[in-house]
Design a binder for these strands. Sequence first.
DNA 1: CATGATAGGTTTAGCGCTATACCTAGCTCG
DNA 2: CGAGCTAGGTATAGCGCTAAACCTATCATG
Lengths: 340, 340
Amino acid sequence: MGVTLKDIAAEAGVSLMTVSNVVNGKQSRVSAATRERIMRIVKDRGYVPSASARSLAARSSRLVGLLVPAKDEASLTIDPHTVEVVGMLERELRRLDYHLMLRGIARRAEITEALRSWNLDGAVLLGFQDAEIDRLKPDAVGKVAMVAMDSYSENPLALEVRSDDFGGAELAVRHLVSLGHRRIAFAGPAFSKTGVVRERFEGYRKVLAENKIEFDESLVSTVDISHQEGEAHGRWLAAERPDVTAVFTTADLLAIGVVEGLANAGRAVPQEVSVIGYDNADIAVYVTPKLTTVAQDLPGKAAEAVRLMMDRLAGKDRPEQATTLQVRLVERETAAPPPA
Amino acid sequence: MGVTLKDIAAEAGVSLMTVSNVVNGKQSRVSAATRERIMRIVKDRGYVPSASARSLAARSSRLVGLLVPAKDEASLTIDPHTVEVVGMLERELRRLDYHLMLRGIARRAEITEALRSWNLDGAVLLGFQDAEIDRLKPDAVGKVAMVAMDSYSENPLALEVRSDDFGGAELAVRHLVSLGHRRIAFAGPAFSKTGVVRERFEGYRKVLAENKIEFDESLVSTVDISHQEGEAHGRWLAAERPDVTAVFTTADLLAIGVVEGLANAGRAVPQEVSVIGYDNADIAVYVTPKLTTVAQDLPGKAAEAVRLMMDRLAGKDRPEQATTLQVRLVERETAAPPPA
DNA sequence: CATGATAGGTTTAGCGCTATACCTAGCTCG
DNA sequence: CGAGCTAGGTATAGCGCTAAACCTATCATG
């Protein structure tokens, strides 16, 4: 069907391996003249190497899997700030001549299947629970360079890239405290012993402790990340917790919902209640008032993920420490001093 | 490294081809007893077929490319409503045991390279200009089932799936007219002879004509799809075109910007000016006032794309007509009668 | 001048799978 | 009862590529 190495070799009057070497840029093996000649023919005939054949023969596919949890019959839901990471990963990988395979994972075994079947060189795990990462076994992973994003699993089989979630929470809550708030609520999805949300929660606690503000269990609420849940929570706060003057949430979408719920219940943001989000999503500036939030270094995250993966593929050891990217507070309009 | 067909064959005491037939569900060739026995071993040993080997031997990869335009060194920018389509495509394909390869296309030749190198069975072109689709040549496409989303190219080499853009515009503008508006502006990105934006523009024109409203060139503005551009345009409208009482925009993001610009310039939406967006993105309900907009049938679009692709892979002819999905108007808070 | 090196190749042996042709025993049927 | 079919397999020949071993002429070197 297409042009093959053999065709090029025949036309150039050299062996197939010589063409292979030229195409793969193995400098030492061929003279400049031969290389030029072959390159010319490759261009002319529009030769494109077969990835499957390469993958089979070389035991390396230059393919990286992007694995995302998926319910069996449900479509992948990639939240907006994750999408950016995906786009950036794709670019980084493309520059290095790797390709990205997007795969929803419904059953655990599918991770292994994907790795093995496609002979993946690397995989990025996006949005998995720490527990899932923990469960990865050496024989399932093989020599695939696995990068877990936003995981705190510490499974030695996975390279880890995450933001400074603890520090991000500190930044946000410290900002609220410095504005004069003392009754500061925490709202986020359910969390367990480890994980992104746990870190942010601990950051919140630490700043409270630092400032001798007693931790009040009744101020932390489990709220799923959705606008609707946020809105309901905002109304609840307004109705049941008039003492609360500030809310730190673990997601912008949630924060926006809370702001709306508060507003719907007649409480002004930020005059009466301050709200801080997390992620600095695009929407943060589309809403009124514009959301104060914690921004992650998304390009950095993607670049780090790829760098770590390439290092491992090059045989380097897993770094001692998981990579942690800096975050920063973006002050906008939803945080202000509490009412007098 | 992994378990191969050969290993299974040896353990089962049958030929390699028999195992292959069992694994691929070729019913006729093997007795039920043998099949059971082999299946058991396959399970036990955790055999996973090698996609590269299959692709090479069978000349079919069960891989579908998701091709998205990308500037050379820039990351893919997938807008939020496209992301949903991606997630849905992935699910549909996964159900059929196909895989998705995400690939940014910087130079035109990369389309062919991707198709050929990976031996793709199909490809979905997302966000390309009609002109790019037009340029696809038979020898580049080969027997790959190409689906162009939201294209009006009519290139026989590509299957086309799109929304009823003309009808969507009609819906929106008719709604504005029925509310009593006569000075209705159109705002969207630059467009050419064909394409999504052109269709929406023509829909807008048609409704004007239907209602004997003279078309006024000065009411149509070229505005890039971004919140910022929208905001600027909103302010411009407020300042320069006080006669305009309604704006139809081709994207929600743009509409939201326009609403904000108008508001910033002191013009109330919808009391003084009505705005209608397009796409019914999530953000449409996060902003205040909530955006009236035209919703597309995203799940339908993804499902149709996959259906068309599978039909073509099954050898069916390209349907005469491009598939066009229905749209609907979602009335929310940004459209109201003009001021008296 | 024998002795390596080295540059510039070539040859061989698969990678794991599928398509296709082929084989054989047992059965049907005019 | 022999031709022909079918069920249930097997054998062979690649798919397009790469890793690794091998070959040979040329040249520098002690």
